[in-house]
Nucleic acid binder design. Structure first.
Lengths: 96, 96
DNA sequence: AAAGTATGCTACTAAATATGTAGCGTCAAT
DNA sequence: ATTGACGCTACATATTTAGTAGCATACTTT
């Protein structure tokens, strides 16, 4: 599945996540993402633009309609993740 | 969002994807994932087990109920991804 | 009992990728 | 003309992954 390979890269998922909340300039996006290095940020943005998921508009980077559709899929994931996180704490996982 | 950081690592998403289709032994899982190096495979499996998403049972590695719930979220993503992929071809993206 | 086979997994080096910092070229406002 | 913000590149360093070999355990076959 192609999409998984694309999303399964550092920052890609996070970028979509951030952009789904609000458009942002290159620099703003950086600081929102723990000051990810501009090298990688630009790499990912290129890919995402190439895939028609992200676009660079007047107000900075933004999701395309397709990008929004995809990000929407993760919105439901958000709710689920919160419950999941709670369960994790309760069961007190000791890992690694 | 914690989950995104976990999933946004190489192979993690792919592993969940593969395991959602069928349980697999360590070695089988490797060959299903383009012969990912055992080093990383084990790393990811440790994490996923620590997070209560994956478990090592009699028949090899398998998703827990929570893991399945999560993977289910991506099932709908699959259908979406296929349409998306078609659109990509139609619009003939030239990227990078 | 010995030998074969499959399991999960570790060790170790080379290659790929990300980080971190500096700064360029462009534009708009002061 | 200087200042500030923009998108983005360069490049050395650090981190992560790939790739291969092999160990320890178990179970089967001979």
């Amino acid at each position: 599945m192609v999409l998984l390979d694309v999303l399964g890269q550092r920052w890609t998922l996070r970028l979509l996540w951030e952009l789904s909340h609000d458009t942002a300039t290159f620099r703003a996006l950086r600081s929102r993402c723990d000051d990810v290095s501009p090298t990688v940020l630009n790499q990912r943005l290129k890919e995402l633009r190439g895939l028609g998921l992200v676009d660079l508009g007047e107000n900075g980077y933004e999701l395309t309609s397709m990008g929004m559709a995809l990000a929407g899929k993760f919105a439901s994931l958000d709710a689920w993740a919160n419950e999941w996180a709670e369960n994790l704490e309760k069961h007190d996982i000791s890992k690694d």
